[in-house]
Deep mutational scan, measured.
Amino acid sequence: QVALSRTQVCGILREELFQGDAFHQSDTHIFIIMGASGDLAKKKIYPTIWWLFRDGLLPENTFIVGYARSRLTVADIRKQSEPFFKATPEEKLKLEDFFARNSYVAGQYDDAASYQRLNSHMNALHLGSQANRLFYLALPPTVYEAVTKNIHESCMSQIGWNRIIVEKPFGRDLQSSDRLSNHISSLFREDQIYRIDHYLGKEMVQNLMVLRFANRIFGPIWNRDNIACVILTFKEPFGTEGRGGYFDEFGIIRDVMQNHLLQMLCLVAMEKPASTNSDDVRDEKVKVLKCISEVQANNVVLGQYVGNPDGEGEATKGYLDDPTVPRGSTTATFAAVVLYVENERWDGVPFILRCGKALNERKAEVRLQFHDVAGDIFHQQCKRNELVIRVQPNEAVYTKMMTKKPGMFFNPEESELDLTYGNRYKNVKLPDAYERLILDVFCGSQMHFVRSDELREAWRIFTPLLHQIELEKPKPIPYIYGSRGPTEADELMKRVGFQYEGTYKWVNPHKL
C-alpha cells in the first residue's frame, strides 16, 4: 500500500502544474464570482478556492472578487462561507491571508454602469489591468444573457486571457439551449467557454479513460460480442427537503440524466481518441451522441416518491408533501431510460440510465454486464461477469466473477477481482471535483468540460421526450421513500436483457 498525506498529494500536483506551459504561476489572475451571495458560491466555490489557495495550487498573485446585487462586505462573505471551509486552528494565518486577497463589488446584473465599476475595481488591483480574468457564473440561467453581454462589453482583460465558467442547466430543451449557446458564442470563442459538469471532475469518471485505453485486457472485450448491457446509475437517499420548488422546474431527467449520466455513457462508449488533447476527446464523445436516436417512450419509466409510513423524519414525507412543490405536480423524481448506440461496436446493446431521489442508498456507478459463458459445464450455477466502476461513495473498480467454492467439488461461487483505489492508495485525500475543474480552467484544459456541439446532441436525444411529458403530463409511478424505485423499472431492465441475480454482496474494501 502507498500512504500519501494531503501535503504529498498537493506537492505532486504542484510539480505537475508548474512543469506545464499552460499554468502561468507568476502571472496575476483575477477570479470573479458572479452571484457571490448565492448558495453555490457559499457552499462550493469559495470553499474550493480556499482549498486550492491553502494547498498552494493557485497562481501566487490571485485575487478573488465577488459580485452580486446584495450590498455585502468581505466580512459578510466570510461569515456565510467559512463554515464550509473546514479550516483547522493551525490554518488561521493562512485564512487571514486568503481573505486579504478577497474583495466585493455590489451591482445589478443588467446595468452597464455596475460592470464599469467592477472593471475599475479590477484595474485598481495590483497589475489588475493586465491580469488573466476568470469569470464564474454562479447564477440562474435567466440572467446569463445580460451578464455575459455586460462582461464582454465592460470587463474583459485587454492583455491577459479571459475565460468564463457556465453552470448547468444549459437551457431547458434543445431550442433554449441553442439560443443560449448562440448568444454566448457570439461574445466569446469556444476556447474561452467552460460549461461545467462537476461529474466530469470526479476521480473515477476520469479513471474510465485510463482503464479503457491503457489496459490491453479490456480492449478486445469492450464491444457487443461480449457486453450484454451497460447500466449507469445515480441514486440519492434523500428527497427534495424543502427545495422542491427549484427541482420541480427541471425534474430528474434535466437535473441528472441528460448531463451526468449521458457524459458517463460517452466515456464508456467512445472510441479511442487520437490523443488526450481536449478536442480529440470531445470529438469522440460527440460521435457517440450522434449514434444515439431520440428516446422512445416505451423505453422510459418515470416515478415519484411517496412517504414511507414506517419511516422516520423526512422519510415519512412524499414529494408532494414538500411545501415548495406545486400542488398535484407530476414532475418525476425517478427515471429509467434505455438508449442504444447504433454503431458497429455497440449495435443492440442497451445502455440503461437510472437516477432518482429518496432511494435506498447513495450511489453513482457504471456497471457493464457481460454475456453468459458459452457451453456451460457447471449446471447453470454460473452468474454473469460484471465490471463495476463505483464513482461514489467509496470509489472502487471491481470485476464480479466466478471462482471455485472451497471444498471437494467443482462448485462455482461469485467473488470479485478488486482493482480499488483504496487498497493501493491508503487514506489518500484526493482533490474534489470542483478543485480539479477550476484548476483545469486556470490551465486552459477543456477536456472535462462540455463543448457546444456535445451539448446540442445531448438535448436532441431528450427534448422530444421532455416535450411529450410536458404536454401529456403522465402521472409518475409512486414508489416508497427509501425503496429501490418503481418495480416497473426493474421490469424494463429485465425486458431489454439485464439479469439481476441478487445473490452477490459487494464487500467494501475500504472497511476491511
Rank of each mutant, 00 (worst) to 15 (best):
D255H: 15
D255K: 06
D255M: 13
D255N: 07
V256N: 08
M257G: 04
M257T: 15
M257L: 08
Q258I: 15
N259T: 15
L262E: 00
Q263G: 10
L265M: 13
L265A: 11
V268F: 12
V268L: 08
A269S: 11
A269D: 01
A269Q: 02
E271T: 03
E271W: 01
K272A: 09
A274F: 09
S275F: 08
S275T: 09
S275Y: 04
S275I: 04
T276Y: 05
T276S: 06
N277D: 13
N277V: 08
N277Q: 09
N277L: 14
S278W: 05
S278M: 08
S278E: 05
S278T: 07
D279H: 11
R282W: 03
R282L: 05
R282K: 09
E284N: 03
E284V: 15
E284T: 04
K285F: 12
K285M: 14
K287R: 14
K287F: 03
V288S: 03
L289I: 07
K290P: 00
C291F: 12
C291Y: 13
C291K: 09
I292P: 00
S293A: 06
S293W: 05
S293F: 04
V295R: 03
Q296H: 12
A297I: 13
A297M: 10
N299C: 08
N299L: 06
N299E: 13
V300N: 01
V301G: 01
L302F: 11
G303D: 01
Q304S: 03
Q304R: 04
Y305I: 01
V306D: 09
V306L: 08
V306Q: 10
V306G: 06
V306C: 12
G307V: 03
G307A: 09
N308Q: 07
N308S: 10
N308M: 11
N308V: 03
P309E: 09
D310I: 11
G311N: 09
G313E: 04
E314K: 09
A315D: 09
A315V: 11
T316A: 10
T316L: 05
K317H: 11
K317T: 12
G318W: 02
G318Q: 02
G318D: 06
L320M: 11
L320P: 10
D321E: 10
D321Q: 10
D322W: 05
P323H: 08
P323G: 12
P323F: 15
T324S: 15
V325W: 03
V325R: 05
P326K: 11
R327S: 13
G328L: 05
G328T: 07
S329V: 03
S329W: 00
A332E: 07
A332G: 08
T333A: 01
T333Q: 02
T333K: 01
F334Y: 13
A335K: 01
A335L: 00
A336H: 06
V337R: 01
V337E: 01
V337D: 04
L339W: 01
Y340C: 05
N343T: 04
W346N: 02
W346P: 02
G348P: 00
G348S: 06
V349C: 06
V349F: 01
V349M: 03
F351I: 07
L353D: 01
G356K: 02
G356M: 00
L359D: 02
N360M: 04
N360P: 03
R362W: 02
A364F: 05
E365W: 00
V366M: 13
V366Y: 04
R367V: 13
R367A: 10
L368H: 02
Q369P: 00
F370I: 04
F370W: 09
H371N: 10
D372G: 06
D372F: 03
D372Q: 09
D372N: 06
D372R: 06
V373G: 14
V373W: 15
V373C: 05
A374R: 11
G375W: 07
D376I: 07
D376E: 06
D376A: 11
F378C: 03
F378K: 02
H379Q: 07
Q380A: 08
Q380R: 11
K383S: 15
K383R: 09
K383A: 14
K383P: 15
N385R: 00
E386A: 07
E386H: 07
L387R: 01
V388L: 11
V388A: 10
V388S: 09
I389C: 07
R390F: 03
V391N: 13
V391W: 15
V391Y: 14
V391T: 14
Q392G: 11
Q392K: 13
P393M: 01
N394W: 14
N394V: 10
E395F: 13
V397A: 13
Y398C: 15
Y398H: 15
T399H: 08
K400Y: 12
K400T: 15
K400S: 15
M402K: 05
M402F: 15
K404S: 15
K405S: 13
P406Y: 15
G407Q: 04
F409C: 14
N411L: 07
E414M: 14
S415H: 12
L417R: 14
D418A: 08
L419Y: 06
T420P: 11
N423K: 07
N423P: 13
R424M: 06
R424Y: 10
Y425G: 13
K426I: 12
K426D: 15
K426N: 09
V428P: 13
V428R: 07
V428S: 15
L430Q: 14
P431F: 03
P431R: 04
P431K: 05
P431D: 13
Y434S: 14
R436A: 15
R436C: 14
L437C: 15
L437G: 15
I438M: 10
L439H: 06
D440F: 02
V441Q: 01
G444T: 02
S445A: 11
Q446M: 06
H448Q: 11
H448C: 13
H448Y: 08
F449P: 00
V450R: 02
R451E: 00
R451L: 02
D453E: 15
E454D: 03
L455K: 03
R456Q: 09
R456I: 07
R456A: 12
E457V: 03
E457L: 05
A458Q: 15
W459M: 14
T463I: 08
P464C: 05
L465W: 09
H467N: 11
Q468V: 08
Q468S: 10
I469W: 08
I469T: 13
E470Y: 07
E472M: 07
E472R: 12
K473I: 07
P474Y: 09
P474L: 11
P476E: 00
I477M: 08
I477C: 03
Y479S: 02
Y479L: 01
I480H: 11
G482S: 09
G482L: 02
R484N: 15
R484G: 11
G485H: 01
P486G: 01
P486A: 02
P486L: 08
P486D: 01
T487M: 05
E488L: 09
E488C: 09
E488V: 05
A489D: 03
A489L: 05
L492A: 04
L492D: 00
M493V: 10
M493G: 10
K494T: 14
V496R: 12
V496M: 12
F498M: 11
Y500H: 12
Y500E: 10
G502C: 13
G502E: 15
G502A: 15
Y504A: 15
K505S: 13
K505Y: 03
K505Q: 11
K505L: 09
N508V: 12
N508S: 13
P509K: 10
K511T: 11
K511Y: 12
K511E: 11
K511G: 12
